[in-house]
Design a protein around this nucleic acid. Structure first.
Lengths: 233, 233
DNA sequence: TGTTTGTACTTGTATATACAGCATGATAAA
DNA sequence: TTTATCATGCTGTATATACAAGTACAAACA
């Protein structure tokens, strides 16, 4: 019942696709045919089709027409952000250690810097009601750019670290996620006695030119580590 | 160096945003001003702006103008799909059990059906080199629609189950993810002796009208459960 | 037979115009 | 002073037109 004409086109076609009247691979009516059928201009019909294409329902092939997409089902939108995590659960972020160390093989690979090159290592512990619920370790290259004050780094989240030097718009972030059982180190940092399930979230921020800016991983107690994601087509 | 004019607009503005010349909250030049400055029509300038808005860099406020977005940093695209998981690791999917049971409190809540109403319970074990690497449990309401043959259900992934009754386009999927330590049941199903880290991925498929179609969870051994996600702005 | 050409259809780009609707600040009226 | 009105600039929608470029197929040619 939308008064807006291209929305009408969009919804009509979407309904046909959802109902199965138009199956994946099927060709849709052309812009011109929709235009004359609905008594609207070609551009309005086109906009309706383009909207549907944006949403992933259909795709266009120049010179051929519009076709119903093959639905994927594998793409989801995952919401995870240190800032959000902190706002939700954490009362206090405690700076545990700041060190300058030579890069290990793993760190040098992740940050794409020579082995043994100096890196800043920051360890934070996240507390809720004075009880540790997570900790994280961040590695930053220590050479380029301005010298960094320890205190600033200590409490900084990934976005904050990055915005010191770059525009957030030019930065990508990659996540890796896996389960783990607490080991000696994590038992100590999280004040655990027995084996406890942890979720590890590895984060890497990469600049426009492909250079890693920060790399690190966060170890979160099971009770605070449920992630949510929804399909995005 | 694009010959296409609205692409030129888009890239020029995008560069200014990435460089920081235009900061979050700043107003962009209006459609008309871009139009006259570049010597192009308003519609072409507009299309450049709309492209940038689609990507999330800017947003428009009717009657006011276009503004640079506040970069979130919390949205990521996560790729997970049973089908992909199976193709990657699994040699054989073994149907472990199919039962018809009254819905427990949890199941009735998740599937939004009355408690004790009959549900189909399907348990599968995923094998690689004859070694179990994961198992999953699926719950389906048992009343509506056509009767389902056990063998079909047994090997069906979530998308397959859903497409039997619905169009994939009309279905949403929600994921929840958390770590766990193997318990008695999982030790038995996965042939483990000691405590082992598992990743649990809960999946729920929901129809257009909000009715859950399938609900279940997959328990994956640590070695096969690394998830990847990338920021999507 | 095999190749080329032409034609008709498709989407993609670009422009010009018009009006509706929102936001804001200046102006006029109460 | 306070309130109402208006003008202006903004985005949103809709239309008409034009040409470029890709695709498919039939007709004409060698």
């Amino acid at each position: 019942m939308t008064a807006i004409k291209y929305m009408q086109i969009m919804e009509d076609l979407k309904e046909q696709i959802e109902m199965g009247a138009l199956a994946p691979g099927d060709m849709l009516p052309s812009e011109n045919s929709l235009s004359s059928r609905y008594g609207i201009s070609r551009m309005s019909a086109r906009k309706g089709l383009l909207l549907l294409a944006e949403k992933g329902y259909i795709y266009s092939a120049p010179g051929k027409g519009y076709f119903v997409s093959e639905p994927t089902y594998s793409k989801h939108i995952l919401y995870f952000d240190e800032t959000e995590f902190i706002k939700r659960y954490v009362d206090e972020v405690k700076l545990y250690r700041v060190d300058i160390e030579p890069a290990s093989e793993e760190v040098s690979m992740e940050l794409k810097i020579p082995i043994n090159k100096k890196v800043i290592v920051v360890k934070n512990i996240f507390l809720a009601d004075d009880i540790p619920i997570a900790y994280d370790i961040k590695y930053l290259p220590y050479d380029k750019g301005q010298p960094i004050i320890e205190e600033e780094i200590g409490y900084a989240t990934f976005p904050e670290i990055v915005t010191n030097q770059f525009s957030l718009f030019s930065v990508k972030k990659e996540l890796k996620i896996w389960p783990e059982i607490s080991n000696e180190e994590s038992n100590k940092l999280l004040r655990l006695k027995d084996a406890h399930p942890l979720l590890v979230i590895e984060q890497k921020c990469i600049n426009n030119d492909g250079k890693p800016i920060v790399w690190g991983h966060m170890h979160i107690k099971r009770e605070y580590s449920k992630l949510y994601a929804v399909s995005s087509l």
